[in-house]
């Protein structure tokens, strides 16, 4: 089926997120307005106005009532999904790079960039059930990463926080005490900055994508390297199908290095890999520019990609896809 081209953002896409039911799709871009779409037909439902900088990341609560967004304007905001009203604003001293709700939506992990004298940090905030009770205090602040932390997510049962970023090291922290529990070793780990991290549905494993032109699959508990997916482009985004053992990698030549001669040079297609055999299966072309964001619908029957070109492309899989034999 032809992909649905979703035009609404004026600047490169940065992040995509489906809600749990898979009927809504939230998109973040370098323009200042996160947008919500119908995940089925790509119709735009509404926007969340209030940020004053590029929006890097978002997450939506399990019941799809609240949205959290992290922005380069040094704030993280809580929104009502339905009305688009701002409920609360966390203020920081540096841009917020990633946000993630915990299981139960009572905590949120936020990463902040190094900025001026401030070093990068991972901060945990308590999210009050009633927005009126919300306060800005951090439950926990973790430091130790060199450079930007591109993604931090919750481990199983909110016991751990898993973070990865520019220093190419994946770290697992204890979410109670803030102690560093485990980190990826140099030998197996990525060689260049990690750009993205996607957690499997049961949090048993996760995939990281890196500028070293590879993606790696890790065991969440032991941080054991399970698989490596080699590719020929820097990886900006990764996603895993919840239905089939597939991994999707997106990326491409850095936007500043894109030649004007031939779009094939950039490798801007989303590549599907067999998760177990680590073999490339097929590619989905379309973006004119690197892919910055990827997300799978929780039902596994569609996925979308967001590119440097400012478009979101929504693909519903054809029947053939589900019967691919490698």
């Amino acid at each position: 089926m032809r992909p649905i081209l979703m035009k609404g953002h004026e600047r490169p896409l940065t992040f995509l997120k489906y809600n749990r039911d898979g009927d809504l799709l939230f998109s973040c871009a370098k323009d200042h307005t996160p947008t919500v779409w119908f995940a089925d037909n790509g119709e735009r439902l509404g926007t969340y106005r209030g940020h004053n900088g590029a929006v890097w990341c978002c997450d939506v609560s399990r019941d799809s009532s609240r949205l959290i967004t992290g922005s380069a304007d040094q704030t993280v905001k809580l929104w009502s999904v339905q009305t688009g009203a701002q409920q609360f604003t966390f203020k920081f001293d540096s841009p917020a790079r990633s946000v993630d709700f915990s299981v139960g939506d009572e905590l949120a992990v936020i990463t902040t960039d190094p900025f001026m004298e401030v070093t990068s940090a991972i901060q945990v905030k308590r999210i009050a059930r009633d927005p009126a009770d919300q306060n800005a205090e951090s439950v926990l602040v973790l430091k130790g990463h060199q450079g930007r932390i591109n993604r931090a997510v919750w481990g199983p049962l909110n016991k751990n926080i898993i973070s990865a970023g520019e220093d190419a090291v994946i770290r697992i922290w204890d979410a109670e005490t803030g102690k560093l529990v485990n980190q990826s070793d140099k030998e197996n780990g990525h060689k260049k900055p990690i750009t993205s991290l996607a957690m499997a549905e049961e949090a048993s494993h996760f995939v990281t994508g890196s500028l070293d032109k590879s993606a790696k699959l890790w065991d969440t508990r032991s941080l054991k390297l399970i698989k490596t997916y080699g590719t020929e482009r820097p990886v900006n985004a990764v996603a895993m199908s919840p239905l089939i053992d597939h991994v999707v990698l997106g990326g491409g030549q850095d936007a500043s290095a894109v030649t004007t001669t031939d779009h094939r040079a950039g490798k801007f297609d989303a590549k599907f890999y067999d998760k177990i055999l680590t073999e490339e299966i097929f590619g989905v072309k379309g973006h004119f520019g690197p892919i910055n964001a990827l997300a799978f619908n929780p039902d596994g029957r569609s996925f979308c990609s967001g590119g440097e070109d400012g478009y979101v492309r929504l693909h519903h899989f054809e029947q053939d896809y589900f019967s691919i034999k490698v």
Binding site: R62, V103, L157, N158, S204
Partner: peptide
């Protein structure tokens, strides 16, 4: 995956409480 699922199953109650 099976090993994992077993652990996952064991943690079900805890998860429910969190939610």
């Amino acid at each position: 995956v099976q090993r994992w699922n077993k652990i996952h199953e064991e943690e079900r109650l805890e998860r429910q409480q969190l939610r």
